[in-house]
């Protein structure tokens, strides 16, 4: 299969100027991305995961030609992004969860019509794509509504359509599910995996929501502080790192840590206790049953490990285990 994206030892440093005295400015180099190398094959769907400020957006901007790397090489669809930005824009689609490429004051359909002229897509092809996306994403009810009046979920469905109308070979999404409710998140995910499956579109998405990756991607890259921490199959990662759950219980009154067989109390704070259990060994129901038997429970919630927690564990296992053990996936 052809390589769609190739990064080789890519660095990006920014110069940040801070005040040092009345007039003088001190120049400080900030390394946003450091020695990042990976390739994405045609038809892959890859999750690019990391906490805020890890370097996700910087990488995406370099891949799409909006930022020049300070060192290293990038090739996307056989082009050098910053040099061939215009040509590349015809072959990629981009979605930013926090920005809009739709025209605020115009009905949604007008944005699509303008994009038809921007990308000079064939009329028949454009109409067929629009009809397909309208059906898939259920846009019919609000095509004539000005974008500024759309809900976030509706707008995001419009953004996805806008990014894919010109049949891009690669679509890059930066936090496409941010702020969406469960139903809209589900719709976005369904649509992306269908597009990937049926059209063979290569998909690269950044997210800090591990749920997105679990539902969508076979492969994930975890980035932290500008470095790729892990590159591997989502299933294996989950099997190794994603099995802990934390049950948070509020008891009627402050108590000693509950003595439990199914889980282990991590910490307590007044009447609240955090109990960790391994979902491979025991079910949540069993833990809850044991806790309720041990004391009067007012409220409870189950927490999945978030990305920060997982990254902490990767670091931990890296320092504990022998080199390449457990994280090499």
């Amino acid at each position: 299969m052809a390589q769609v994206v190739r990064l080789a030892a890519v660095d990006k440093t920014y110069a940040v100027r801070t005040r040092a005295g009345r007039v003088r400015r001190r120049r400080r180099e900030v390394r946003a991305v450091s020695d990042v190398s990976f390739t994405i094959e045609s038809g892959e769907m890859v999750g690019y995961v990391g906490p805020n400020g890890a370097g996700k957006s910087t990488t995406i901007k370099m891949i799409t030609g909006i930022l020049t790397p300070s060192a290293g090489r990038i090739e996307v669809l056989g082009l050098t992004p910053t040099v061939d930005r215009r040509r590349l824009t015809r072959r990629i689609g981009v979605v930013f969860g926090q920005r809009s490429q739709l025209w605020w004051d115009l009905p949604l359909i007008d944005s699509f019509e303008l994009l038809h002229h921007v990308y000079r897509t064939e009329r028949a092809r454009h109409d067929a794509n629009l009809a397909a996306f309208t059906e898939r994403l259920d846009l019919g009810g609000f095509l004539d509504v000005p974008v500024r009046q759309l809900s976030l979920g509706q707008r995001m469905r419009g953004e996805l359509t806008a990014a894919l109308l010109h049949d891009p070979a690669l679509v890059v999404l930066d936090e496409p599910t941010i702020g969406l409710d469960v139903v809209s998140k589900y719709a976005v995910r369904e649509f992306l995996s269908e597009t990937n499956r049926e059209r063979g579109t290569t998909v690269l998405l950044t997210t800090h929501d591990l749920d997105d990756v679990e539902h969508l991607c076979r492969r994930m890259l975890i980035i932290d502080r500008g470095r790729v921490l892990l590159d591997g199959a989502v299933d294996r990662f989950k099997a190794e790192h994603g099995n802990d759950r934390t049950l948070v219980v509020d008891l009627e009154s402050a108590a000693e840590p509950l003595p439990l067989r199914t889980g282990q109390v991590l910490r307590t704070d007044g009447p609240r206790q955090w109990i960790r259990f391994d979902r491979r060994r025991t079910s949540a129901a069993a833990v809850i049953a044991e806790v309720t038997a041990a004391g009067a429970v007012r409220d409870l919630a189950i927490e999945e490990p978030d990305i920060e927690e997982l990254i902490r564990r990767i670091y931990a296992s890296r320092t504990e285990g022998s080199p390449g053990d457990g994280v090499g996936l």
Partner: peptide, 8 residues
């Protein structure tokens, strides 16, 4: 940035 992503 969005405008720069367009081939126009």
């Amino acid at each position: 940035v969005i405008d720069l992503y367009r081939p126009a």
